[in-house]
Structure formats: C-alpha cells, structure tokens
Write a protein that binds this DNA or RNA. Structure first.
Lengths: 167, 167
DNA sequence: TATTGTTATACTCTATAACTATA
DNA sequence: TATAGTTATAGAGTATAACAATA
C-alpha cells in the first residue's frame, strides 16, 4: 500500500476512502439485521479481526492466547481439562499446544498421580509473551468499551453468557 | 448409545449424566470470562450449533440461508453485491452460489445493462425451501428469546451492531 | 484502467476414527 | 472398560493471486 513514489497524499486517500464508501451504499441485508445469529457472527468477525491484527506482532492467535490465559490462571491443568474448558477437541489441542511448546511458551510436565496425562504450565518466556499480549488485549477491550459505553459492556457479557449456556 | 440389550434404564442414564456433569465441574476459564471476544465467540458457536442442527434437515448452512434471505429481500442483486453485503469473498461466493444453483434453489440471470454480471434470483423451489427454513429460524429465535427475555434481544442486537461497525 | 465473474490454491479451524499406554 | 494423549485425515471456511470478458 503506497510503497512506491506515493504521489497520492493522505488527504487524497481519505477522499478516496470516503468516495468508495459513499458510492457503495452497502446493500441492505434486510431481515438478517434482526436475526441474532447473523448479527452475532458479524460482530464476532469484526472483533476477532481487531484482536488478530493486534496480536499479529506476537504471532499469537486468539485460541493460543486463551490457552496462555487459562494456564496462567490455573497452572497444572491437563490437556483434556484445557481443551474441554475452551471448547477445543482433544485431538486438535495436541497440535495447538505443540506449537506453544515448540516456541518455548508452555511446557508439558509429568503429572504426579497419572502417568497417562501431563500437567501443563507456562514457561517464563510464556509469561512474558502473555504479559505483552495482555497489554494489547486491554487496548482492544478499551476500544470496544468506547463503542459499547460503560454499562453496555456488562450488559453484553451478561446477555452473551445466557446464549452460551448449553441446555 | 444403548443399541444392545440396554440393561440401563432411563433413570440410570439420567443419574449417569448428572454424575458426569457433577464430577466434571467445568474448569473455570478465569479472566477469559470477562473478555468480550472470548464470550462472543463461545456464544456465536452455541447459537450456530443450534441453527446448524435445525437446518440440517434442509441441508442448508447458515451462509446459504443468508443468501436466500437476501435474494428474497432484494431480488436481482449481482454476485459482488451479495458477497460484499454478507462479508464473503467474491471468489468463495461463486462456489457457494454454484451449490444453490445446482440444487435449483437460485439462478443466475443475464443482467440487463452489464454483460459482465448476473442478476441473481430465487427459484420457486428456493422460495419453498426458504419458507421452510424461516419456520425453523423463527423457532430458533424464539428459543433465544426464552434465554434473553423480551428486552434482552433488542439490547443484544443494539450492542452487537455497534461492535460490527468498521471504523 | 477498473470491474465482474471465475479458477486454482493454500491455510486455518473443526470433527472423527483409530491407535497406545495407562487407569 | 474407560480415560489421556496422539496421529491421520477429511471437511468447512477463508484469503489471495491471476486470468478472460467486459465496462
């Protein structure tokens, strides 16, 4: 984007963007706008887009971040516990955790009473990366708060929590 | 599940389920429970699980349903319009729409003023399938309302709408 | 030059079956 | 028998580059 001579100034780029948005009046999605599933999906994609962009510098995906957060909060969990808590298939979690371990962010430790399983922990490096990610996450959350307002955030978490309940 | 002699009665199955849930107290996800992105993602997955299950009888995916709804609301849109409105890449929309056309649910019609593009329409069969899907969708939405309460639904749509805005 | 539809391709995420070693 | 971890694999969904036809 603008890597060469860059004859177009910032003002012209803004004008171009405005024109593009004005000339493309965004087709009305009709009844979809009133369907929770559709609106929920679009919102989730928009939020993840921002998180993924912010985490890109750390080469961290949202799912990887959630594992780091969970292990920081509850060290020593076994793979099945973490996978189940995060809604990840055990089989897929193996590969995900392999990536974290290969990068030295987390480790598998022999479990005390059960030779089938591992106790999972963050490494010191993992703690560092998590700390940096938490800063980005806080900024992300702040930008959401700007859109939601102070009470909106708590309202939203409450409503979404009801939807996530499996029953 | 209980395909053979089935010595276990319904009461015992219920007890087993209760025990399973009691013995697996669902690991606390800690700080994740307060992060909008995480809660949003889990809610979206739960909601989609229900929709996908309900639509399975029609062999319809959420994205396919959204195309039918949009074409019913605004017939004659071209592929780029529909794809952009739904946040689907043009290239991927081609394949998606091929599936609908192959099943006779929608059709590509020659566009009046532009020989590059098609005007898209539902077929009569598509209208029928959409009508059946709308019944299932209404039931789905009703089950969400039961979880959200009457005002919760509108609150949620409003809050999610703010998150989906790209700026 | 820009847009529309298209093909091909690759990458991520997810789901399932099957295996091993332990319990 | 059941559970924990693992491997392999297949299916969605998504993103990008490149091309032909048309504007």
């Amino acid at each position: 984007m603008g890597t060469d001579t860059d004859k177009t100034g910032a003002a012209e780029e803004l004008a171009a963007t405005a024109a593009r948005e004005a000339s493309a009046p965004a087709v009305d999605v009709g009844p979809l706008a009133g369907m929770v599933g559709y609106v929920l999906r679009r919102a989730q994609l928009a939020v993840f887009d921002d998180v993924i962009t912010k985490f890109a510098a750390l080469d961290l995906r949202p799912a990887q971040y959630s594992v780091l957060v969970l292990l920081r909060h509850t060290p020593g969990l076994k793979q099945s516990d973490v996978a189940a808590a995060l809604g990840i298939q055990r089989a897929n979690f193996v590969v995900l955790f392999d990536g974290l371990e290969r990068r030295g962010l987390a480790r598998r430790s022999a479990a005390p009473n059960d030779r089938r399983s591992y106790a999972l922990y963050l490494t010191e490096e993992g703690e560092k990366v998590l700390a940096r990610a938490n800063v980005l996450q806080a900024a992300h959350e702040a930008s959401l708060d700007a859109k939601l307002g102070p009470s909106g955030r708590e309202q939203l978490l409450g409503l979404l929590g009801r939807l996530a309940k499996r029953d």
